[in-house]
Each structure stands twice: as structure tokens, then as C-alpha cells.
């Protein structure tokens, strides 16, 4: 085990950081990342994580996740479409087999698909390198086959990793990851092969963390989204920022939550200096324009 992940150098959020200029002078690149997931009824065991808190079958936890695909997704899709906001889907790729209607609906709205593993109940923990490559290749192939898109982004299934994960993702041709929470702007990731950007994804804005961990009420979730945006919009006048809202249809798509959320994204979409982007578009722009200057400006981390 390592004491530092070794994935990035130090780049302070101050005058020494190169300036980011988004398309059309936008201050904030805003993206929504719906996690469209399939949780298995009888998942295999992994010593590093139990899928459910209760012994199998955990019908309450399983069915609460299934709510997202049957009902919540459709409310979320409508709310986003009303404000012309595309999603960048963090996809458990087995969803292409289980619920192809959802994939078709996303594609029809011109959404991006990136990978969140195969199932949310299959963790990367304890996999061999060959198994991890198989997992990533499955995502590349499945997304290509069902959507025609090249896989560019990665968010590890259930945020489970090995020490190799990030390097393999870069080596296999992906261009961005959502797994690092160290910044409000994109950053270069240090890998031996490929060119990989870290795109801000924000756990604080994530509906699971907000609702279930920080115990934020549905109405207050709308307030904190606005506050997060206001600040990033203000700071974005100096150098372009990124705001992401990661969602889970099983939470955001429930009737008592969707309205306050929709009002908040309407507020954001109502600003003129906002770039309504996808993860891939943000990564492409950053890699083409800022990756090298950011890497150059970064300072090596000192040692004790």
C-alpha cells in the first residue's frame, strides 16, 4: 500500500494557476452525471465490501434501487430535458442488456455514456490485473455496441479500486476520470501511458451524499445547489470552473424531491455565461487547451 496515491502534483488554487477559458467566455462548465445503475438481487461476495447491510435477500435495499429505473429515471429525464440539459451517464453497462429502453431514451436526448463498471454490486476490490482489464474492456465494448459511442470516462463501480485502476483506465484509451475530489477545476492525472484528465464530480453535490449522508432535505438540496453555483459562477469570472451534480434516479426521481431540484437547475440554466456541457466535452477542451500548462505549473510534492 502507498501513503499517497501518486496521481497528481500540487497546484494551488491561486494566482500561480494557469487560467482556463471555456468556450464562448463561459464562467462555469456545468454538467449533470446521472448514475444509471443495476444492483443485483444475489450478488457474489467480495471480502472488501458487502453489497447490502442486511443479509440476502435484502428486498428493501434492492427494490429501493430498482425504483430508479422503473420510475425515478423518467421524472429526472423530463426535468433535465425541460431545461435543455444533457446528461453524462455514469453507466453500469449491464443496464444495456437489462433495460435498453433507458439507454435509448438517453441516446435520443444526445446524452453521453461513460462507465461506472458492469454492475454496482461488482466491486473492483481484489481483482487481478487481467480481471480489471476485462472489466474495462467490457465497458468499452458494451458502450460501443449499444450506443456507438467511444468510451471516454470512468467512475469506478461503487467507488471501488485497486492500485492499478487509474493507470489501466488511461492505458486503455479513456480520457477522463471522476474519481478524484481534490479540485474544482479539471487537472492532469499522472499516468505512465495516455493522457488522462480528472474532471470535478463533487461528492458534496451528489444526491446520495447530500440526502443520505449529510441529511439534507429535498428543498435544502435546491438551496445548496444554487449556493454552490453562485460561488463557482463568481470565481469563474477569473478562470473557468466546473460544477457537476451527480445524481441517482432512485433518489432524485422521487416525487417529493424532483421539483426543488428542477427549480435549481432552471436557475443555473438561466445564466448566460454557463456552458451546459458533458464530461467528454469538458475533458476534450481541457486536454486540448490546458492539460500541459497545468502539468507544467504543478509543483512536485515534498517529502517528510
Amino acid at each position: 500500500m502507498k501513503s499517497d496515491p501518486g496521481l497528481y502534483d500540487y497546484l494551488p488554487y491561486d494566482r500561480t494557476r494557469p487560467k482556463i477559458t471555456w468556450p464562448n467566455g463561459a464562467r462555469v462548465a456545468f454538467w449533470i452525471a446521472p448514475n444509471i445503475e443495476f444492483y443485483e438481487f444475489q450478488p457474489p461476495t467480495n471480502a472488501s465490501r458487502a453489497p447490502w447491510t442486511r443479509p440476502l435477500p435484502d428486498v428493501l435495499a434492492y427494490s429501493a434501487r430498482d425504483y430508479g429505473n422503473r420510475t425515478g429515471f423518467w421524472r429526472m429525464l423530463d426535468a433535465m430535458a425541460r431545461h435543455n440539459i444533457r446528461g453524462s451517464v455514469s453507466l453500469n453497462v449491464a443496464m444495456c442488456d437489462h433495460c435498453p429502453e433507458i439507454i435509448e431514451a438517453c441516446a435520443k436526448h444526445d446524452w453521453e455514456f461513460y462507465s461506472h463498471g458492469t454492475y454496482n454490486t461488482r466491486y473492483t476490490f481484489n481483482m487481478s490485473e487481467a480481471q480489471e482489464r476485462e472489466l474495462i474492456q467490457d465497458s468499452i465494448d458494451t458502450i460501443k455496441k449499444h450506443t456507438g459511442q467511444k468510451l471516454d470516462g470512468w467512475l469506478a463501480p461503487a467507488l471501488s479500486y485497486t492500485d492499478r485502476t487509474i493507470e489501466l483506465v488511461a492505458e486503455m484509451g479513456l480520457t477522463y476520470i471522476c474519481d478524484l475530489f481534490h479540485d474544482d477545476q479539471p487537472c492532469p492525472v499522472k499516468t505512465a501511458k495516455g493522457k488522462l484528465a480528472s474532471i470535478p464530480y463533487s461528492l458534496e453535490m451528489n444526491d446520495v451524499i447530500a440526502y443520505l449522508v449529510n441529511l439534507v432535505s429535498p428543498r435544502r438540496y435546491g438551496d445548496i445547489i444554487r449556493a454552490q453555483f453562485d460561488r463557482l459562477y463568481e470565481e469563474g469570472a477569473e478562470s473557468g470552473t466546473v460544477m457537476c451534480i451527480p445524481l441517482h434516479p432512485y433518489l432524485i426521481g422521487s416525487p417529493h424531491r424532483i421539483k426543488a431540484f428542477e427549480e435549481a437547475i432552471a436557475y443555473i440554466a438561466g445564466h448566460d455565461k454557463v456552458w451546459l456541457a458533458t464530461g467528454r466535452e469538458i475533458a476534450q477542451h481541457f486536454i486540448a487547451n490546458d492539460f500541459d500548462t497545468f502539468a507544467k505549473a504543478s509543483q512536485p510534492v515534498g517529502s517528510l
Partner: peptide, 27 residues
């Protein structure tokens, strides 16, 4: 090392649900 081979196999990866109590259906 690594996970057992079964960990990379998905016997219920097909259209609809991975159990047969009810059909997949969109509200």
C-alpha cells in the same frame, strides 16, 4: 490472486430483471 472466475461471470445479464418475481416495466 484476484477474485474467483465466477466474479467476472454474469448469469442473469439479459433483458429485464435478474430475478423472476416481476417484469421490468416503466411507469
Amino acid at each position: 490472486m484476484g477474485m474467483p472466475d465466477d466474479y467476472m461471470r454474469y448469469p442473469h445479464r439479459h433483458y429485464g430483471m435478474d430475478q423472476d418475481r416481476y417484469d421490468w416495466s416503466m411507469l
